[in-house]
Amino acid sequence: MTLRVLYFAWLRERIGTGREEVETGAATVADLVEELRAREERYAVAFADMTTVRAAVDQELVPLDTPLAGAREVAFFPPMTGG
């Protein structure tokens, strides 16, 4: 499947893009992270400490073990700091 993958804040800066299309067979968000990590150093650096990374699937905040079946958009970002 082809997923739209978005990155925000320091994840965007470390990976060097805010948005890309990713061809993947990953079953879960965590599997997608593993795939990206293996792909290039910049992903391995960005995803080095997953306790500081949050994920959303189709714009809903989700845990990392969430399945990707039917998903179109996955986003990765640090803990939110609104207000």
């Binding site: 925000f8 905040l61 970002f77 803990p79 939110m80 700091t81 609104g82 207000g83």
Partner: peptide
């Protein structure tokens, strides 16, 4: 909003 609104500063 402090910890659940998708904003980064």
């Amino acid at each position: 909003l402090k910890s659940r609104a998708p904003f980064w500063k």
